[in-house]
Structure formats: structure tokens, C-alpha cells
């Protein structure tokens, strides 16, 4: 079946769309990059976001959105190649280096990114931030994990349960 004109940016000037953050900042970005978001993809395919309209994103503030778009712009070319099966090792290494740098950020920013990646359904970014949090908690005790993620102190009941568990599975805490 013939696909309708999809407006991808392979022929000269790339199509641009405008995204509007919760604090009313406008971001103009290539449609291909914004389409990494499953949430936005349909709207963009329907022709939304162009011209003066813009797509409002009431759940994402401008600081977070600019960070999200930094990721999308970097990853859009590889995504356009269908996950870049023919990407060179250099390209892949460069993306990996970018990803590592990208999540080397303050915890509050990381949290906003987790929520934004989830709301916008950007698969690669969801995976990247989840991996970052997993790296932050690996090797830590339950209490340290709670502190790392800023959980409130455990109730006496929870504390007793933790102590019993640590006795039983001493090897896991070596």
C-alpha cells in the first residue's frame, strides 16, 4: 500500500514543528527528531505542530524539554535508519559517549527526564534514564537506596523486616 506523503526530512529542507513547554517557551525542532516521541508522532503525521500552531506540552517545563530535544536531535539520524543497522562503529561509539555524558546530571533533572521520557514515550531515552537509576542503586544496601532516591525513613515495621532479611541473606550484603 502506498504510504501518504510522510514529510520526512530526506529531501532538502527538513520539516519543522514547534513544541510549547508548560512555561510557554517555544521550541522549533525537526519533525524527524520530535517524532522519536511516540506521543507526538501521530500528531506530527497528521500535520500538527507546523506553522504558527505548535504542540502544547503542559507536563514538561522548558529546562526539561530542551534536554529531551537535545537527546532527540542527536538520536534522530540513527532512528531514521531503522535503528541504524549499517551505522559504523564510530557512529555507535559517538552515540554511546553522548548518552553517558547526557545522563551525568543532577538528580532532580534526572527525575524530570524520567517523567518526560515516560509521558512522551521516547523509548531510547526511557531506557537510558532507567539504566542510569539502576546504576545508581546497584551495590547499595536497601537503606542506601532509600536515601539515594530520597525515600522517607522506614517505619519501625519496615526496619524490622529489613533487618530480618539481611540476616537471612547475609551473602547479598557482603
Amino acid at each position: 500500500m502506498a504510504a501518504p506523503e510522510s514529510g520526512d526530512g530526506n529531501n532538502g529542507a527538513a520539516r519543522m514543528v514547534t513544541l510549547i513547554s508548560s512555561d510557554n517557551t517555544r521550541f522549533e525542532v525537526e519533525a524527524a527528531a520530535a517524532s522519536l516521541s511516540q506521543t507526538l508522532q501521530l500528531t506530527i503525521l497528521d500535520g500538527g505542530g507546523g506553522g504558527g500552531d505548535g504542540i502544547p506540552l503542559p507536563n514538561v517545563d522548558s529546562a526539561t524539554l530542551s534536554k529531551v530535544l537535545e537527546y532527540c536531535i542527536k538520536h534522530a539520524p540513527a532512528a531514521a535508519n531503522g535503528g541504524a543497522p549499517n551505522a559504523t562503529a564510530v557512529d555507535r561509539a559517538e552515540l554511546e559517549r553522548f548518552d553517558n555524558e547526557f545522563v551525568n546530571i543532577d538528580q532532580s533533572v534526572l527525575y524530570s527526564l524520567i517523567m518526560a521520557a515516560h509521558n512522551l514515550e521516547i523509548e531510547g531515552l526511557q531506557s537510558l534514564v532507567a539504566k542510569k537509576v539502576a546504576d545508581m542503586i546497584k551495590g547499595k544496601s536497601p537503606m542506601e537506596i532509600r536515601r539515594t532516591l530520597g525515600f522517607p525513613d522506614p517505619t519501625p515495621e519496615e526496619q524490622a523486616e529489613m533487618n530480618a532479611h539481611m540476616l537471612e541473606y547475609g551473602w547479598a550484603y557482603e
Partner: peptide, 20 residues
């Protein structure tokens, strides 16, 4: 999503996470 990405060669991480 986060728990799923704990390192596969360190199941102790999962045991500890179960107590968080």
C-alpha cells in the same frame, strides 16, 4: 523499568532492592 536494568551478573542487587 529500573529494576529490570539491574546488572544481570549481580542478582544480589535484586535481593537488596526487594527490601527497599
Amino acid at each position: 523499568e529500573i529494576l529490570f536494568r539491574l546488572p544481570p551478573d549481580d542478582p544480589a542487587s535484586l535481593v537488596r532492592a526487594a527490601l527497599v
